[in-house]
Design a protein around this nucleic acid. Structure first.
Length: 294
DNA sequence: GGTAGACCTGGACGC
DNA sequence: GCGTCCAGGTCTACC
């Protein structure tokens, strides 16, 4: 079974996949040898399917091994469209960026879309898993979480979906610490799963909320484990670019780019991108640093 | 409101 | 082998 989903041009699946590290976090999978890009999705009816996503002339195709119903096809199409930002329009940003040599590549390569998970719950957990750890640690923790708590495709225990809030909520901090090895993040993730599962916190409504970005930010900041860096990352995934994902890497890059290697503060990083207004988060993210950080 | 210090883990590094 | 440091931060107590 193969679905075809249109994307607003210009579009590049390669640019979405490489927009950040998410393609390396389970249940995404990017095969370095074949180039195959896939995601294991659990549908609302709890059916678990592997989606193989490829670029086609006007968008993407999604290959599913087994037959699916029309309702399931619609759910998959909506999920993939969200994950790849197929409806997103960056023409205003492209126009603004013309003439800036450090951003001259973005329109040519159709950059701007940032790969995201089907749910904000999954992206929030993954963002928490990026904090205060090496990237290899983030990959390990996400993989263990999926392996330990995710629903498998029938007959294939190696392919599992991202766990639902209820599955994690039923766990406990000891298990998350000692078996999933999430460290001090265990309590953050357990609290979030329990709040979402109980309905205390309706996280998913923030995906298409009419609230001002400041209100969305406040709501996300109320999550334990989500601070300034994490909230900026989540806002960027939601399509709000007025905050910068200032982490230790950003400080190093801006220091090298404009301050001759001298230490800089988060305020100075903000100032460096102030001219890009509501697009500054994306300008920072897509900036050609051409400095490898070594 | 600003800022030390603690926090899990695992890989890199020096000895 | 072993100890130390620290990585794509955040929270809390304290001032």
């Amino acid at each position: 079974m193969k679905l075809e989903i249109a994307a607003k041009p210009p579009f590049s699946l390669h640019s979405v996949i490489h927009s950040h590290g998410w393609a390396r976090l389970a249940p995404f999978n990017l095969d370095d040898e074949t180039g195959e890009f896939s995601y294991v999705l659990e549908l609302e009816n709890q059916r678990v399917l592997k989606l193989i996503i490829e670029e086609i002339p006007d968008g993407v195709s999604v290959e599913i091994e087994d037959p699916i119903s029309k309702v399931e096809a619609n759910e998959i199409s909506e999920a993939v469209a969200w994950m790849l930002g197929l409806d997103q329009d960056f023409s205003e940003f492209y126009e603004l960026a013309r003439g800036e040599s450090k951003l001259e590549h973005i329109e040519r390569e159709a950059q701007g879309r940032i790969l995201r998970s089907p749910t904000l719950f999954e992206d929030t957990i993954k963002t928490i898993l990026t904090t205060n750890t090496a990237w290899s640690g983030t990959i390990r923790m996400a993989n263990t979480l999926v392996t330990q708590f995710g629903e498998a495709i029938p007959g294939d225990d190696t392919a599992k979906a991202f766990p639902n809030p209820d599955t994690i909520a039923e766990s406990d901090e000891k298990t998350l610490r000692e078996e999933t090895r999430l460290g001090y993040r265990s309590s953050y993730i357990l609290n979030l799963a329990r709040e979402v599962n109980s309905g205390t916190f309706d996280l998913e409504t923030l995906k298409d909320s009419d609230l001002p970005v400041e209100k969305v930010r406040d709501s996300l900041l109320s999550i334990k484990g989500v601070g300034n860096y994490a909230v900026a990352n989540l806002l960027m995934l939601l399509g709000h670019y007025s905050y910068l994902t200032i982490d230790s890497w950003a400080l190093k890059m801006v220091s090298h780019e404009w301050y001759g290697g001298e230490p800089v503060t988060p305020t100075e990083v903000e100032q460096a991108f102030e001219k890009w207004g509501d697009w500054k988060g994306l300008a920072y993210w897509l900036w050609d640093w051409s400095y490898d950080g070594e």
